[in-house]
Lab assay of single mutants.
Amino acid sequence: IEKFKLLAEKVEEIVAKNARAEIDYSDAPDEFRDPLMDTLMTDPVRLPSGTVMDRSIILRHLLNSPTDPFNRQMLTESMLEPVPELKEQIQAWMREKQSSDH
């Protein structure tokens, strides 16, 4: 029984630690959010139409349809242009958020 109590305490400790580690990014500025999924972008790319999306989301879309989801023009992965300035701004915002939450 004592071992179970210790195990339960350890589990509670881990759960509390994980809860502290989770950071809420739901208040991200609109320009940091993917327009299709409304999630925080981690690897922004510009489509030929000028729309900026997260790379993982547009690549997932391209698996089903080789088109720009906003104007239905033909689109391939090679046409995606990285946006390193925005990526750095997002990373800086995330770092600031992490340091203010801890």
Rank of each mutant, 00 (worst) to 15 (best):
E2V: 06
E2Q: 06
E2K: 09
L7R: 09
L7I: 08
L7F: 14
A8V: 09
A8E: 13
A8S: 14
E9V: 06
V11G: 10
V11M: 12
V11A: 09
E12Q: 07
E13K: 07
E13Q: 07
V15M: 08
A16P: 08
N18D: 12
A19E: 13
A19T: 13
R20P: 13
R20L: 14
R20W: 14
A21T: 09
A21S: 11
A21E: 14
A21V: 11
E22Q: 08
D24V: 05
D24N: 05
Y25C: 12
Y25F: 11
S26I: 15
S26N: 15
D27H: 05
D27Y: 08
A28V: 12
A28T: 14
P29R: 05
D30H: 08
E31A: 10
F32L: 05
R33S: 05
D34A: 00
D34H: 00
P35T: 03
L36Q: 02
M37R: 02
T39N: 05
M41K: 01
T42I: 09
T42A: 13
T42N: 15
D43Y: 04
V45A: 03
V45E: 00
R46G: 04
L47Q: 00
L47V: 15
L47M: 04
P48A: 03
P48T: 03
T51S: 13
V52D: 01
V52L: 04
M53I: 15
M53K: 01
D54A: 00
D54E: 12
D54N: 04
D54V: 00
R55S: 04
I57N: 07
I58M: 03
L59R: 08
R60Q: 04
H61R: 01
L62P: 01
L63V: 12
L63I: 13
N64I: 08
S65P: 00
T67I: 03
D68Y: 00
D68N: 15
D68A: 00
P69S: 00
F70I: 02
N71S: 05
R72P: 01
R72H: 02
Q73E: 05
L75P: 01
L75R: 01
S78N: 09
S78C: 13
M79K: 06
L80R: 00
V83E: 11
P84Q: 07
E85G: 13
E85K: 12
L86Q: 04
K87N: 09
K87E: 08
K87M: 14
Q89E: 06
Q89L: 09
I90V: 14
I90N: 01
Q91H: 12
A92S: 15
A92V: 08
W93S: 02
R95K: 02
K97R: 14
Q98E: 14
Q98R: 15
Q98K: 14
D101N: 09
